[in-house]
């Protein structure tokens, strides 16, 4: 089948479509940079979606739990081996993603007789200063998108992933409009929760195509929070501690939200 180039292209396109369908129900994950760190937030029903990779690197993932697990484990093994042989300062998200994970994902995606990874990953790495924070989205085909300034975009202090492209783009549009880098933790938490709500409203065939009205968002958020708890984790900027990643407790989240 794949001797003919056209068939190969067709097979890849089908496989992309298949993976997109599988990921389409994935609950959004927002990561926002604020004055004292980076906050990851999602709403979960039963499965943990936010993970510690290394001292300064966190991960939020949607997709098949088995595939997420393999990628997560590989990332931790690579970072730990590097941190052990050299130093924690030599562990870099940029190298981890570009040099190690992306090629593996691309290969798995394009070898049409093997199984691809059903996963979409959002990494963040805390910097010494806010300008050095890195948000990095890694797709199932190895594609990488970051928050860095480029030809088509200004530097952003956030990252987002969701089940569909439309939902991700709407979340990013919301964060571009509402999020400011110098936010306090409380403000960042509220904005991230709203970004999640926007992403959630945009999922599915009947999903919204434009940013929703304020009251619709509040109603939706209330409704969702009744059914599911908030999962959140932070990377702290405080240079005095080595391990910056910390999952937030329910108490911390609710007292910061003021309820």
């Amino acid at each position: 089948m794949i001797e003919e180039p056209y068939r190969w292209v067709e097979a890849i396109a089908n496989r992309g479509e298949y993976i997109e369908t599988q990921l389409a129900t994935g609950s959004p994950i927002a990561a926002v940079g604020y004055r004292d760190g980076i906050l990851f937030l999602t709403l979960g029903r039963n499965r943990q979606k936010l993970f510690e990779i290394y001292d300064r690197i966190g991960l939020g993932a949607i997709g098949h739990p088995g595939d997420i697990e393999r990628l997560r484990m590989a990332a931790i093994e690579l970072a730990s081996a590097e941190g052990f042989t050299r130093s924690a300062a030599d562990v870099s998200l940029r190298r981890l993603a570009h040099y190690s994970l992306s090629p593996v994902l691309k290969t798995a995606f394009e070898q049409v007789y093997g199984a691809p990874y059903l996963a979409r990953l959002l990494f963040a790495e805390i910097g010494a200063k806010q300008e050095a924070d890195l948000f990095l989205r890694l797709e199932y085909d190895g594609a990488i998108a970051t928050n860095q300034a480029g030809v088509a975009q200004a530097r952003q202090d956030f990252g987002a992933i969701s089940g569909t492209r439309q939902s991700t783009e709407l979340m990013e549009a919301y964060l571009r409009a509402e999020h400011s880098a110098g936010s306090t933790f409380e403000r960042a938490l509220k904005v991230a929760l709203d970004a999640w709500t926007v992403g959630h409203l945009a999922l599915g065939d009947g999903g919204i195509k434009e940013l929703p009205a304020r009251d619709k968002m509040v109603a939706e958020r209330k409704e969702r929070l009744r059914a599911a708890g908030i999962e959140a984790a932070i990377l702290e900027r405080d240079g005095k501690i080595a391990i910056r990643y910390r999952a937030l407790t329910e108490d911390e989240i609710h007292s910061a939200l003021g309820d």
Binding site: R70, M73, L78, A81, Y99, S100, P103, V104
Partner: peptide, 29 residues
């Protein structure tokens, strides 16, 4: 960081996830 084959040594016992074993596998210990 070396290129990897993902999950090649996963096993349910979790013994493959022992950190010294990982270092030995990579020739670092």
């Amino acid at each position: 960081m070396d290129p990897v084959t993902l999950g090649s040594d996963q096993n349910f016992s979790g013994i493959g996830n022992d950190f010294p074993a990982l270092l030995r596998r990579r020739g670092l210990l």
